[in-house]
Design a protein around this nucleic acid. Structure first.
Length: 587
RNA sequence: GGCCUCGUAGUUCAAUGGAUAGAACGGCCCUCUCCUAAAGGGCAAAUACAGGUUCGAUUCCUGUCGGGGCUACCA
């Protein structure tokens, strides 16, 4: 049980004794982490909430509750402000909690009592196009959520739903046959395919005849022409190899790569089925799903208001020309995930601009009677300095590859400057961990819904609220253990540490909080809670490190401090691992 | 036009309806004979505007202004 739960239980008991059956309103009452140490470690607004409902004076009610609580072994209590009940946890109880963390490989984090099968759909780049900065958010957030959900005891399946089917293949096929340089293709397949695509795209705008030929190539592909299918497969293969290189550098793994094309055969029957069930119908030649007024118009993703009138804006699942769309594939994909993987939950890590699309998809599933924990884990856009969607000066986007290279390059320069004597191989590894860590942490420390301004210096910063700051705190702990000839994993103790110095208590306060922070992340899919927590922890550790010598202290004080160090190292390692960030032992 | 979303120090970002709104960068002061100074300790600096609900509002509601997105055959 976490400290929060312990205190909460005390409070519930006291309230029950005080109010008896009159406690129906108590469901909203809880104990929260106090936002300011002046008010103790935890606080409850129980008295203020109840006072309103019982029409009593909040402070007087708080007095009664305090009476009922009596003297707690875990914390001192007091009433403050308009009627807050504040809990100041006793150092001895922090120490006791640390002691139990020391013997727990999960560091106090209790796995969920209700494990689910969760499919996480993220990254999803297109074939024949390199990943650009825009893919950073989905890729990194999705990976972190997968790691956290797994740690919480769920069965997690990661699926890279790549864009391997679509109208762009008409141009790629034509280009492959007419404009391809095989040598360049060998060297850098994805970049070459992109170049081909762009050339053909421009050509099509100038010469309508080329556009026509591209469309013909697409039709041939869709009708199963063996030559075009072969080229298409090669494109996918080449793209996958290129993508895998980047994922490997980022330490990101997918259980499946079920792209759009995987669902081709399911699309036609799906549309058929939706029509038979009366969920979809024909409109202007296209097959569409309308909500038919099931909803409040304000909330209805199938309606849009024009000049004060609500007009239907359906989800189109088959075009007038017979082609299928994004929505069709997504419905088929959702079916497959439910039927084949028996998913309880499907989380889509996709930009906020597609909010309406997912509302429609989820609503259609509801109309079909399919239920589950379906979430659109949306994130904001990456903007340029002008607050417009991000592009470089010449209108290109920045490739993810370039961002990674630049990050490692910058980190490498700092490693050489700070620690020139390390072996070359180790310097290389450190630069890799620091550079990629910086990118990931910059992404994960922000609220995913906020737009952010792309800035090389900010994304790749190596000081301040960044991955290297956290990595450095780990390096400092490791350095201590190197000198004791032990390691932080094996430290155990016969008894609880003793905490005296304020910075020891502060460090303990944060260490025990790990068990409270991790389970809360998945409520709203907000990894930035973990990033913020880890930064606070690292900060406390640095303060502690400056204020409390470990190796030069003696007796049980030394042992207590070593316990604090060991737990800091373990929490950092586990926590940063959940964010997908590597911690070097020296830097 | 309508709908969604955002607006917080000079800048970039935080803040489950809680108390004196946190950080980082930049600026100005300190601290390495001491476990890695990629560090620590200080100072100055912000909730777009106007109402409302509430014991209490950056957070919820309404309106105004401003940015971004979406608004039937792209994904």
């Amino acid at each position: 049980m976490t400290i929060k739960e312990t205190l909460s239980q005390h409070l519930q008991t006291a309230l029950k004794n005080l109010l008896g059956d009159n406690l129906s309103c108590a469901c909203k009452i809880n104990v929260e982490i106090a936002q300011d140490l002046r008010y103790g470690d935890y606080q409850s607004n129980a008295a203020m909430v109840l006072a309103r409902q019982l029409k009593k004076n909040p402070r007087a009610l708080a007095e009664d509750i305090l009476q009922g609580l009596g003297e707690l072994p875990e914390a001192e209590t007091e009433i403050a402000g308009p009627g807050f009940i504040n809990f100041r946890v006793r150092p001895s109880f922090f120490a006791q909690t640390l002691f139990s963390m020391l013997g727990d490989p999960r560091l106090g984090v209790v796995a969920t009592s209700n494990p689910k099968t969760i499919i996480i759909d993220f990254s999803a780049p297109n074939v024949a196009k390199p990943m650009h900065v825009g893919h950073i958010r989905s890729t990194i957030i999705g990976d972190t959520l997968a790691r956290i959900a797994r740690f919480m005891g769920n069965k997690v399946i990661t699926d890279n739903h790549i864009g391997d089917w679509g109208t762009q293949f008409g141009m790629i096929l034509w280009g492959w046959k007419n404009k391809l340089n095989p040598e360049l293709l060998q060297k850098d397949p994805i970049a070459t395919l992109l170049e081909v695509y762009k050339n053909v795209n421009t050509l099509c705008k100038e010469q309508p005849s080329v556009l026509k030929e591209c469309k013909d190539e697409l039709v041939k592909l869709q009708s199963g022409d063996s030559e075009n299918l072969e080229i298409w497969k090669q494109c996918i293969q080449l793209t996958k190899v290129g993508l895998e290189k980047i994922y490997k550098r980022l330490d990101i793994h997918f259980d499946y790569w079920l792209g759009e094309s995987f669902y081709n055969d399911a699309l036609s029957p799906l549309v058929q089925n939706l029509m038979e069930r009366g969920i979809a119908r024909e409109s202007d030649g296209a097959i569409c799903v309308f909500s038919d007024g099931f909803h409040d118009p304000q909330q209805d993703p199938f309606l849009v208001s024009k000049n004060g009138q609500w007009l239907p804006v359906p989800a189109i699942i088959r075009k007038a020309d017979g082609g299928f769309l994004y929505a069709t594939t997504d419905l088929a994909t959702l079916d497959y995930r439910i039927n084949h993987f028996h998913a309880d939950a499907i989380w889509y890590v996709v930009g906020a601009a597609q909010d309406k699309h997912f509302k429609q998809i989820f609503d259609i599933e509801r109309m079909r009677g399919v239920t589950g924990d379906f979430r659109h884990v949306a994130f904001g856009s990456i903007l340029g300095k002008d607050r417009r969607p991000f592009k470089t000066r010449d209108g290109e986007t920045v490739s993810l590859q370039d961002v990674i290279d630049e990050a490692i390059e910058r980190a490498s320069r700092v490693v050489h400057e700070k620690n020139p004597t390390l072996p070359e191989e180790e310097k290389k590894n450190i630069a890799q961990a620091v550079g990629i860590g910086a990118i990931k942490f910059a992404e994960l420390s922000q609220n995913r819904l906020s737009d952010y301004i792309f800035d090389w210096d900010k994304m790749l910063a190596l000081t301040g609220d960044t991955a290297p700051y956290l990595q450095n705190s780990f390096v400092r702990v490791c350095s201590i253990f190197r000198k004791t000839n032990t390691d932080f994993e094996s430290i155990q103790s016969e008894k609880a540490p003793i905490l005296k110095h304020e910075s020891e208590i502060q460090l303990a306060r944060l260490l025990v909080r790990f068990a409270e922070v991790v389970p809360a992340i998945l409520d709203d899919c907000r990894p930035n809670l973990l990033a913020a927590y880890l930064y606070d922890l690292a900060r406390s550790f640095h303060s502690f490190y400056e204020a409390c010598p470990v190796l030069r202290s003696e007796g049980f004080e030394r042992e207590s401090r070593l316990i604090l160090c060991a737990l800091t190292a373990r929490v950092l390692k586990k926590g940063m691992g959940l964010l997908g960030i590597t911690l070097p032992e020296r830097m």
